[in-house]
Design a protein around this nucleic acid. Structure first.
Lengths: 332, 332
DNA sequence: ATGAAAGCGCTAACAC
DNA sequence: GTGTTAGCGCTTTCAT
């Protein structure tokens, strides 16, 4: 069996209280016994039980991450950056793939609570507002990532999606495009991006694409299908703004299958600036989200919250940045 | 405060033992009190504490997943499939990104042990054999994924990497290629793939590429750099076998930058059959790993191990499958 | 500076 | 069928 604090105490000839104190650096113990106990612990390869410690009201040092789908490189990138910084701060991450399904979201939250996680991060695409409210009521340390819930007082790290949409559309407008379509899944962040897109179009006096059709899933295949549909419509676009890089790749494929060249015949802008953007051909013009920064900031926020170092909630708004690559070109 | 078993017991007018029994469906309780207690629990929104339960020797229902890097789509795909099946089986996954660094591996293992995870999955690229031995000695339920450690008696799910390498090389040889280079990071699984590759070349009496240079990182950039180097060597290859899809994408980019067309001037085979393979242009001929299957199988293995339902360790060997797409073509 | 003891929330004998 | 009680491994007063 793994040694317990009792074993260490016995071997060191002290009480468990003393051992506990040297483990936690609390109370007052002579340098001599401290050294002694430390040595014994090393010898026995003693590892304090987080479980037992947690039961006495201390932290579990694990936090739950609710995230739609690791197969999306944006999310796996986020997960990676969150996990990295969590590790630095001494926390572990329990990953929960929700697939945007409210049922899964609810079930995972319940599980995380039973396991007494110290806090929860809700990454983009979490649509279950009631669940969020409940968590807030229960005073569970919480942070929202890559999405805003304007109505709720909760720590948030997000980018200005509206601006991002505006940047994408403006870029295309600046290139002379008038028929600019948009491809997106129906999510809060995308509605914001769409708002920015609309804004730019309105400013330019463009009325193309008033009614938009949403895509059912945020993956390459869906992007391809919708792009196909758009391209074979009676008034096809000359440019497409895809609300993430996956959809953009799908759009590129659709264009290619119709014998169109990107960007000569069709310009495409993505969103996220994931690893895909620079890997594909043509390299994708896309709106970059500061993925690493987002992970770091959200972890910092959450840990401050856990430690009760904050009086007020914060909303950290990061700014997206257009990265121009080869998938967009002048029109006409 | 969250309600405890005592609160429920009091509200229901029964003892905590009774409540415990209805929670766990153990012992004998009348249908009447069971219903009563169940209702009270619902009313109070009671959630049993996994932490307390774990302290009495029961499971934590969480397992640790050590994995090199979520940014690699193969690993994020694996993580996703493991997490999915874990969820089905009632477990949560703590993710640990190791970056192939033995130090990180060791540190994470120590953390996981302190947290009393029920088991650990070591995914591909785990090179810290001593750590594995130590875990075995401590009788920690363990499963190795996407890698084999022939010398150790431990549950394993892997593919036949040697066969995979053989398939890739044979395919290229069958297309008439004689100068077939290989790009890989120095990892166990890649050494196996290389063995298969060598085997195929030897069978065909080809002696090209005797000394191979390894790549330092498994990413697009590294693949590109090494491919460039190969292509501008005095005796450049007409085909490249990249040991994962990322490296293959890098190779495609390198070719393109030199004005070569894939597959007309250079054939490229990848490995993993990640989402990238079908997304890029040209679509990648690659050796498919059954990612979903692998995730399901390791979880099953590990849970059986946790529950002590197995007398003997198992090694499950899955077979890779060549998926021919557009990045390879006849030579000469 | 150190230790005795209560208690965290739950499980599992064992008693009734 | 149901309740009593002794732990599980640790933290934390409170004595000494």
């Amino acid at each position: 069996m793994k040694p317990t604090i009792y074993d260490v105490a016995k071997a060191a000839g002290v009480s468990i209280a003393t051992v506990s104190k040297v483990i936690n650096n609390t109370g007052r113990i002579s340098e001599k016994t401290r050294k002694l106990v430390l040595n014994i612990m090393k010898e026995m390869n003693y590892q304090p039980s987080v479980v037992a410690s947690a039961l006495t009201g201390k932290s579990t040092y694990t936090i739950g991450l609710m995230i739609p789908d690791l197969a999306n490189p944006f999310f796996s990138g986020l997960a990676r950056s969150i996990e990295d910084h969590a590790h630095v701060l001494g926390y572990n991450i329990v990953i929960c793939s929700t697939d945007y399904e409210p049922d899964k979201e609810a079930k995972y939250i319940s599980l995380l609570l039973q396991k007494s996680v110290d806090g929860i991060i809700l990454a983009s695409g979490f649509e279950n507002i009631d669940a969020v409210k409940e968590l807030i009521k229960q005073k569970v340390p919480l942070a929202i990532l890559a999405r805003e819930i304007p109505s709720l007082e909760v720590d948030t790290v997000a980018i200005d999606d509206c601006l991002g949409g505006y940047q994408a559309a403006s870029h295309l407008i600046g290139l002379g495009h008038k028929k600019i379509a948009i491809i997106a899944r129906d999510l809060w962040s995308n509605r914001e991006r769409m708002r920015g897109y609309r804004l730019a179009l309105d400013e330019a006096g463009i009325s193309y694409g008033k009614e938009v059709e949403y895509v059912r899933e945020s993956n390459v295949e869906s992007g391809k299908q919708l792009a196909e549909k758009l391209l074979r419509s009676e008034d096809p676009p000359t440019a497409i703004f895809a609300c993430n890089d996956l959809l953009a790749v799908g759009a590129i494929q659709a264009a290619r299958e119709r014998g169109m060249s990107v960007p000569a015949d069709l310009s495409i802008v993505g969103f996220d600036n994931t690893v895909w953007a620079s890997a594909i051909d043509p390299p994708l013009t896309t709106v970059a989200q500061p993925i690493r920064d987002m992970g770091t900031q959200v972890m910092n926020l959450l840990v401050q919250e856990i430690n009760g170092q904050k009086k007020y909630k914060q909303r950290i708004m990061l700014l997206p940045e257009l990265v121009v690559r080869g998938s967009t070109a002048k029109h006409g």
